[in-house]
Design a protein around this nucleic acid. Structure first.
Length: 262
DNA sequence: ATGGTGGAAAGTCCA
């Protein structure tokens, strides 16, 4: 099975790109982030034409996550237990959706950006990650053999070598010890970030800002990451970061990360 | 091509 994650930065602006990628890379399950579309406007018919069923969590033009699968899609959960809210305490943001596809519990995750270190959004980001850690730890405690994938845009660069220049990030989010500790806590709960295992090369990025010619200059960040439970990590035989998807007409600012699962 | 981000309930907010 091949499982991919991709912050698509608007599924409507890049439907053709997403579908072409599914076919070219022979992907069975695709976790999408930043779909930026409400559920009823998701172009699910286009996916259905290629044999993919789609489940979505979208709210207007902000955030939005989805999972497309051609190997079944069951037991859909919108949001994880204990997921914090932002703004309206009665309304969760569209940042997490889970579904079981081909025997794997897939979570498509869009971790809050955090904005600035002194912004309340940064505290929200840390709370969101702590709640995710609690939920993820619980899933493994309930079933140590569970096949769980926690994939998406984590908005955290875990290592200094996951950005082009740490000097640029002084005083900024994505690289702070607090964020990195929150990310590491998922590993402490028993998960393995398998893209690092299979693609250990330093300065291998998954995101390049649209501004300042960041992609031609290869000034990027490695923030799209793939945690797997022990039983699933043991089945991962390879990982591909699809750098070429940043090229061409109207790319997303992120590229897909693909897991090969035996 | 001598510039320079892009997407969206847009005319501003978010990343």
């Amino acid at each position: 099975m091949r499982l991919a994650t991709w912050n698509i930065n608007s599924i409507r602006a890049r439907t053709d790109r997403a579908l072409a990628f599914l076919e070219r890379a022979d992907v069975d399950v695709l976790a999408l982030q930043e779909t930026k579309v409400k559920d009823e406007a998701f172009p699910r018919e286009r996916f259905a034409e290629l044999g993919y069923e789609v489940v979505t969590s979208g709210f207007s033009q902000w955030n939005g996550v989805a999972i497309a699968s051609r190997v079944g899609i069951e037991d859909v959960e919108v949001g994880f237990p204990g997921m914090p809210t932002w703004g309206d305490p009665a309304a969760a943001e569209a940042r997490a959706i889970g579904a079981t596809c081909g025997g794997v519990r897939v979570w498509s995750l869009y971790v809050p950006n955090g904005r600035e270190i002194d912004d309340p959004h940064f505290a929200y980001k840390l709370q969101w990650l702590a709640a995710l850690r609690e939920a993820a730890a619980g899933w493994l405690e309930a079933d140590p053999q569970a096949q769980v994938a926690l994939v998406g845009d984590w908005n955290i660069a875990p290592l200094d070598t996951d950005v082009w220049d740490m000097g640029f990030f002084a005083g900024r989010t994505h690289v702070t010890p607090a964020e990195r500790e929150a990310f590491a806590a998922i590993a402490e709960a028993g998960y393995t970030e398998v893209s690092r295992v299979h693609v250990p090369a330093e300065h291998t990025y998954t995101y390049w800002d649209y501004q300042q010619l960041r992609f031609p200059k290869n000034m990027g960040m490695r923030i799209d990451l793939t945690y797997a439970s022990p039983a699933l990590a043991a089945r991962v035989t390879g990982v591909t970061i699809e750098r070429n998807e940043r090229k061409g007409k109207q790319p997303s600012d992120h590229v897909p990360v693909v897991l090969d699962i035996a």
